[in-house]
């Protein structure tokens, strides 16, 4: 059974928290791979939802991973001290 992938929206601001929650709820019960490579902005409320999802998947005994992350996403979780959400790979911005 292959992993389900959820691609996160660009802007994870306060407006994005409710739709994100719904999207995650819809994926529950299966291994989940989250693609954060499009994220330009990560806010506290979406972070809460992602942390909640990670805990929920752990409770369910299902694998949960952040497969890919944009530099902005990586910076965001570092800034907010949420290293448990660190991605397996960060999309490198080659222009830097």
């Amino acid at each position: 059974m292959s992993n389900t992938t959820l691609t996160l929206a660009e802007s994870l601001d306060m407006n994005a928290a409710a739709p994100l929650l719904q999207a995650l709820k819809d994926k529950r019960g299966k291994p989940l791979s989250v693609d954060a490579s499009q994220v330009r902005r990560l806010g506290g409320q979406c972070l809460q939802v992602l942390l909640s999802a990670q805990a929920t998947w752990a409770t369910d005994g299902q694998p949960f991973e952040i497969a890919e992350a944009s530099p902005e996403f990586t910076d965001g979780i570092a800034l907010m001290g949420a290293s448990q959400l660190a991605a397996q790979s960060t999309v490198q911005d080659l222009t830097q």
Binding site: L20, L21, A53, A55
Partner: peptide
């Protein structure tokens, strides 16, 4: 909280 109980617009952190 877990996903079942979380209010996406509340504050927990």
């Amino acid at each position: 909280p877990l996903l079942t109980d979380i209010d996406p617009e509340a504050a927990y952190l």
